[in-house]
């Protein structure tokens, strides 16, 4: 029964639909990662400024995302914010907003850590050369910091990709939802559909995340020495 079940994957346009769902998932992840990276750099730079107020605000922002589960944030924005403002937001938009805010906080912390780990004399010798504030960051600090933060940033991306699986809970037609639809429709012809569909989705996520985690591990090893 199981062995024949695998055909459910190739029945009709099933595979095409699943990959279509995956594309939605990938889009959400990709856009969120880009936005978080950009915002994260800004946040990280601001965290290195010696303003106590800013530091407190960003700390609070970061901890808010670290303590409250992401799914709660998704619910909060999808049901709560839309209700409060009396607007409708698509699940995709909500997902991108929440993931980007979360990613920016985490990315900001990574950027801050990388910048703060740079030896102080680098900054001082840059200043001694008469570089302006922006030149200092642009030519001295950022190029060095990038190396230190890339492994962490890639790790964060892997986490974000995995977290995209949650969007099914706020009504997005992602790869999981498409899988559920196919399972429901083919329950008569392919009783074992759920085994194969979820198995496939499991593997799809693995195929995306595994190379990323290998890459980050390799970078870490290379730049540590």
């Amino acid at each position: 029964m199981l062995s024949s079940g695998i055909n459910v994957l190739f029945e009709g346009s099933n595979m095409q639909r699943l990959l279509g769902g995956l594309l939605i998932t990938a889009q959400i992840a990709f856009i969120s990662i880009i936005i978080s990276s950009l915002l994260g750099i800004v946040v990280g730079l601001m965290m290195t400024l010696k303003s106590r107020v800013l530091q407190f605000v960003f700390r609070f922002y970061l901890e808010a995302f670290r303590i409250i589960p992401i799914l709660v944030w998704l619910f909060f924005v999808y049901f709560g914010v839309t209700n409060m403002l009396d607007i409708h937001l698509d699940g995709e938009i909500v997902a991108v907003v929440v993931f980007s805010l979360w990613g920016a906080a985490e990315m900001g912390d990574i950027v801050r850590g990388a910048l703060e780990s740079l030896p102080k004399h680098q900054m001082e010798s840059g200043k001694a050369l008469g570089l302006s504030f922006w030149q200092l960051y642009r030519f001295v600090l950022i190029p060095q910091a990038v190396r230190r933060m890339l492994p962490g940033a890639i790790n964060l991306s892997t986490r974000m990709v995995k977290t995209t699986s949650l969007v099914v809970m706020i009504g997005v037609i992602d790869v999981v939802k498409v899988g559920q639809q196919i399972i429901e429709r083919s329950i008569i012809d392919f009783p074992a559909a759920s085994f194969w569909i979820y198995g496939l989705i499991f593997i799809l996520y693995f195929i995306i995340c595994y190379p990323l985690s290998i890459l980050s591990k390799k970078m870490e090893m290379k730049w540590e020495s």
């Binding site: 079940g5 999981v176 759920s194 693995f206």
Partner: peptide, 23 residues
């Protein structure tokens, strides 16, 4: 370790809960 770290818990649960009943 690689399988567990590189896949989402939601999919792991769905596979366990819905998929394995078929076995």
């Amino acid at each position: 370790i690689e399988l567990s770290r590189n896949t989402p818990l939601l999919i792991q649960l769905f596979f366990l809960y819905y998929g394995l009943t078929k076995l």
